[in-house]
Amino acid sequence: MNKMVTRTGQVLLLATMLVLGSGFGQVKEKEVADFRLKSVDGRSISLKDYPEAKGFIIVFTCNHCPFAKLYPPRLNELNAKYKALGVPVIAISSTDTVVYEGDSYDKMVAKARDEHFNFPYLMDDMQTVARNFGAQKTPHAYVIWKENGRYVVKYNGAIDDNGAEPEKVTRRYVANAVDELLDGRRVNIPETKSIGCQINMRK
């Protein structure tokens, strides 16, 4: 009898461990909502406007931040490469324009024109999209993937590992994440620390 009780207890313990352990080491991926924001070309843009897209490179950036100013050429390169593969770049400014007048819509239009942006530059004037994503800095990059009608964050953080010296970049976090997803693989580095100016959220 005691042996039967002991064996039954061992079986129950093993089953419990298997259930508890089934989620061990799995990171819950964040889902983000679609949005519709005004672009510098006057259009209203939503993720649903890209029905053929596999995913997106979303970059929260702005005009005034010294760190953000380093990346427009690299964003152009990312969009030139990955848009054709179904993963376009979309840049969003969520800066408080009361505090930073240089991030006004008119100034955004001028910057996109002067620096020949080949990607949409959207104004998140109510900061709702930045809050939804949890964006903290400029630039703060996200790679999101379409899964069963949902938009799931697969990577967030820095664009690469050297803002000041692009020729010395050794880790292209965003590009690597997109390459892995296009190959059907799990993203090896799903999160890094974004380096840049803080996005000040209005209260």
Score class of each variant (00 low, 15 high):
residue 1 M to Y: 13
residue 1 M to I: 13
residue 2 N to E: 15
residue 2 N to K: 15
residue 2 N to V: 15
residue 3 K to C: 05
residue 5 V to F: 13
residue 5 V to L: 15
residue 5 V to N: 14
residue 6 T to L: 14
residue 7 R to N: 09
residue 11 V to Q: 03
residue 13 L to W: 07
residue 15 A to D: 04
residue 17 M to V: 14
residue 18 L to Y: 01
residue 19 V to P: 03
residue 20 L to S: 05
residue 20 L to T: 06
residue 20 L to W: 04
residue 24 F to Q: 11
residue 24 F to Y: 15
residue 30 K to D: 10
residue 36 R to T: 15
residue 38 K to L: 08
residue 40 V to I: 15
residue 41 D to G: 09
residue 42 G to R: 04
residue 44 S to V: 11
residue 47 L to V: 13
residue 54 K to Q: 06
residue 55 G to Y: 03
residue 56 F to H: 04
residue 56 F to S: 03
residue 64 H to T: 14
residue 65 C to H: 02
residue 68 A to D: 03
residue 69 K to I: 03
residue 75 L to E: 03
residue 77 E to F: 00
residue 78 L to D: 06
residue 79 N to F: 04
residue 80 A to V: 01
residue 82 Y to C: 07
residue 82 Y to H: 01
residue 85 L to C: 01
residue 85 L to A: 10
residue 86 G to D: 03
residue 86 G to K: 06
residue 87 V to R: 00
residue 87 V to A: 05
residue 91 A to L: 03
residue 91 A to K: 00
residue 91 A to N: 02
residue 92 I to M: 02
residue 94 S to G: 03
residue 94 S to H: 01
residue 95 T to V: 08
residue 97 T to R: 04
residue 100 Y to R: 09
residue 101 E to W: 02
residue 102 G to M: 08
residue 104 S to A: 09
residue 104 S to C: 05
residue 107 K to Y: 06
residue 108 M to E: 08
residue 109 V to G: 10
residue 109 V to N: 09
residue 110 A to W: 01
residue 110 A to T: 07
residue 111 K to T: 05
residue 112 A to Y: 05
residue 115 E to D: 11
residue 116 H to Q: 12
residue 116 H to D: 12
residue 118 N to A: 11
residue 119 F to A: 08
residue 120 P to F: 06
residue 123 M to Y: 07
residue 123 M to L: 12
residue 124 D to A: 08
residue 125 D to Q: 12
residue 126 M to N: 15
residue 126 M to F: 05
residue 127 Q to F: 05
residue 128 T to D: 13
residue 130 A to Y: 10
residue 130 A to N: 12
residue 130 A to E: 13
residue 131 R to G: 08
residue 133 F to A: 04
residue 135 A to S: 13
residue 135 A to L: 06
residue 136 Q to G: 11
residue 136 Q to R: 11
residue 140 H to Y: 05
residue 140 H to W: 04
residue 144 I to T: 07
residue 145 W to V: 02
residue 146 K to R: 14
residue 146 K to Q: 09
residue 156 N to M: 07
residue 156 N to C: 02
residue 158 A to Y: 01
residue 163 G to M: 01
residue 169 V to P: 09
residue 171 R to Y: 05
residue 171 R to A: 10
residue 172 R to G: 02
residue 174 V to R: 01
residue 180 E to L: 04
residue 181 L to Q: 08
residue 181 L to K: 06
residue 182 L to C: 11
residue 183 D to C: 12
residue 187 V to P: 05
residue 187 V to R: 09
residue 189 I to E: 14
residue 189 I to L: 08
residue 190 P to I: 14
residue 190 P to S: 13
residue 190 P to W: 11
residue 191 E to F: 02
residue 195 I to D: 11
residue 195 I to F: 07
residue 196 G to D: 11
residue 197 C to P: 09
residue 199 I to N: 09
residue 199 I to F: 09
residue 201 M to E: 11
